[in-house]
Design a binder for these strands. Structure first.
Lengths: 142, 142
DNA sequence: AGCTACATTATAATTATTCTAAACTATTGA
DNA sequence: TCAATAGTTTAGAATAATTATAATGTAGCT
């Protein structure tokens, strides 16, 4: 059974027409064991390597943002200019390696649940994100 | 006693020459009761309003980054393309209002200390940042 | 098969930031 | 006090990520 059928259904559910390009995007994003992190640029590169015809940047941006809006992707904030996305949409936190610019997932046992005592009237909490910045520890090696 | 003397000393300590422009930047950043958040653009606007001659974007970027490197300013990561800076350099976390794009400080009593159980060999933790995204709560008003 | 609405695409536009090189100025020492 | 010099400022160009545009293409209904 071709896996693409799932993606066609998935796209329909989300209200997107299943086109060649979008199915390809789905394949690259979701046809894998583990969730992963990527930038739009990464994604375009991956797709270009796997397709004969090239895909437009605009299409990738549009589709990725459509997925994000529907909750199939999560955006991650890091100070660099680039926007990272995560195919792991469950609530979790991240380590960011400032040397390699690599993002690493934390699971529930790595960080205790964050308890926010402050409330702001008329506002609800959309999300709580923890970013732990790490870098090589040269202290001991010198 | 003119307050500028402090800024001249401060700049010298940081290893920057105290020029008109830099002193003006210091005044706008540190001549106030409370710490605050800003983007480089905000800062240029504030300075332009207070000075007859205009200040170059490049100067502001250079100076702000010099301060940041020395620990006199903190950079804050938010998904938008803009980089926010904070004159409050102590360890603290933030609320980000997604409606108004306003940043709000949390103090120690708002969020418990974050305990990270995960360690990555050869890497040290540089910082732990919590960002709580909030937005207007329309659930009850509809 | 053909219509129509939605998609894709290349390209231009926009925005934030960094770079560059020429003009300027604070500091140092004579 | 004044000139030399090393660091600064500046306007504008360059870059990079992202978004908008408008012409062309295509999925899905009839």
């Amino acid at each position: 059974m071709p896996k693409n059928c799932n993606f066609i259904e998935k796209l329909r559910e989300v209200g997107l027409r299943p086109t060649k390009q979008r199915i390809k995007i789905c394949e690259v994003l979701y046809n894998r064991e583990k969730t992963f992190h990527f930038t739009v640029n990464d994604l375009v590169k991956m797709i270009s390597e796997q397709m004969s015809q090239k895909i437009s940047l605009a299409t990738v941006y549009n589709t990725v943002h459509a997925f994000e809006k529907k909750g199939y992707l999560k955006e991650i904030s890091i100070d660099s200019q680039k926007t990272y996305f995560d195919t792991n949409t469950s609530a979790h936190h991240h380590f960011f390696d400032e040397d390699t610019h690599e993002l690493i997932d934390c699971d529930g046992s790595d960080i205790d649940k964050i308890n926010i005592r402050k409330t702001i009237t008329g506002k609800k909490i959309n999300s709580i994100e923890v970013l732990v910045r790490i870098a090589s520890d040269n202290q001991n090696q010198k």
